[in-house]
């Protein structure tokens, strides 16, 4: 059988989502952000939410997310995406609103905004990319940088005495009664990608059902910042990030008592 006999429309099993714009992303080769963008596009397309969704992009590597997914977008100030999303969803309760934030944006400068938005149970999806480093500004320490991890501002490794502890902010957020679904995922293998997509689908469905905040952390790589190849970075993440940031659901209102929200 020739390749040309296989490459026919009737045999198509996997293609780019129609919601992904034909712009080459600015991300470094092998960056996890691209996979997560793809999954959000696929989920919004499959759930038919394009016309109702408003995305809020952060400051950090995800700042240009608005160039890649064909929905209406707002670009927020550093860390303020949850407040921006609050303003949108409170005045437009019929809209599906999500923020897309990195670890510096969400866990450092925007720690107050994310905790209070989740505590109020704002009916939004939060997608949290945790790669333990500031990618956009050139690889500085993030709140989630592991102990001993080398970054440009911890050149001898993160020192707990000097820099404090790596922050498990998702565990903090899971404590808040306003959240209905809190999960930690990854996208380094096809199986992980499928699970992450299911988590994102559940998060967007929850918001469509007005269940309060759904929070999806994606433990990610920053191979440029970590100074590794993309394949090495995935391995390093599995060996070093996963033991400290274990994957899985922390809270799911379908299993526990449902969170009521207006």
């Amino acid at each position: 059988m020739n390749i040309s006999d296989i490459i026919k429309p009737e045999n198509l099993v996997y293609e780019k989502s129609k919601l992904q714009l034909n712009t080459i992303m600015h991300y470094c080769p092998g960056c996890s952000n691209g996979v997560v963008h793809k999954l959000i596009s696929e989920v919004l397309e499959e759930l038919g939410l394009q016309e109702r969704t408003i995305g809020v992009s952060p400051v950090g590597c995800g700042v240009f997310a608005y160039n890649y997914i064909d929905i209406d977008w707002q670009e927020a100030a550093h860390g303020r995406a949850p407040a921006v999303a609050t303003g949108i969803v409170r005045t437009n309760p019929d809209k599906i609103v999500f923020t897309y934030q990195g670890d510096g944006d969400l866990a450092s400068i925007g720690a107050a905004e994310i905790l209070h938005a989740c505590n109020r149970g704002e009916n939004i999806v939060v997608v949290f990319i945790n790669n333990g480093i500031y990618g956009m500004t050139g690889g500085q320490m993030a709140p989630t940088t592991l102990e001993g991890q080398v970054t440009s501002t911890t050149p001898f490794g993160r020192n707990i005495d000097l820099n404090g502890y790596p922050m498990k902010i998702t565990e903090l957020i899971a404590q808040l009664p306003g959240t209905s679904y809190v999960t930690r995922q990854s996208v380094q293998t096809a199986a992980a990608v499928r699970k992450c997509k299911n988590a994102l689908r559940k998060a967007f469905q929850n918001v469509d059902q007005k269940k309060g905040t759904s929070f999806v952390e994606v433990v990610s790589t920053c191979n440029s910042g970590w100074k590794m190849s993309p394949v090495q970075a995935n391995k390093w993440m599995e060996e070093n990030m996963f033991p400290f940031y274990p994957l899985g659901d922390m809270k799911d209102s379908e299993k526990n008592a449902p969170v009521s929200k207006n």
């Binding site: 296989i6 996997y14 780019k16 992303m25 991300y27 080769p29 092998g30 996979v35 380094q188």
Partner: peptide, 10 residues
């Protein structure tokens, strides 16, 4: 796993 969505599969 492709971050740049540049693979189509049949």
């Amino acid at each position: 796993v492709c971050p740049d969505t540049c693979i189509t599969i049949y």
